[in-house]
């Protein structure tokens, strides 16, 4: 299961890096979204998947799954949600002001 997850995470990372390299504002915004999904999956996977019963709910199990990564990933999801919302607003404003969504045109002139 961990191996499968690792491959999935790898694919998500590579797609996201590919999108990062594109010239379109919105694609870059989507790239950050995908990247954050990738790292959240990584955070859950690295601590081992489903090693035992869920903690607190059952008291008679031999082993329990580590609950800490789940707490961490929840926090990370909330943060990435806020950042993505902000980024989308910023991309939209940039598009409105500069009338373009091509990052090549957003480089700025050399003499500024």
């Amino acid at each position: 299961m961990e191996l499968l997850m690792s491959i999935v995470i790898g694919i998500i990372f590579s797609v996201s890096i590919y999108l990062f390299m594109s010239k379109n504002l919105l694609r870059v915004a989507v790239a950050t979204l995908l990247l954050s999904h990738g790292v959240h999956l990584l955070l859950v996977t690295m601590s081992g998947l489903q090693r035992g019963a869920s903690p607190i709910l059952s008291f008679d199990a031999e082993a329990y799954t580590d609950p800490l990564p789940h707490a961490l990933v929840l926090t990370a999801i909330v943060i990435s949600f806020a950042v993505t919302a902000l980024l989308l607003v910023m991309s939209y404003r940039t598009y409105k002001v500069h009338k373009t969504d091509d990052l090549e045109d957003l480089r700025g002139s050399a003499d500024e």
Partner: peptide
């Protein structure tokens, strides 16, 4: 707006790597 977009993107990327580091060290 133009320059902040780049600032935000580089920082989001670094934050993602931060979580990768946290996952590994954990």
């Amino acid at each position: 707006l133009r320059e902040s977009f780049k600032y935000v993107i580089i920082n989001i990327f670094a934050s993602a790597l931060f979580i990768v580091g946290i996952a590994w060290v954990y």
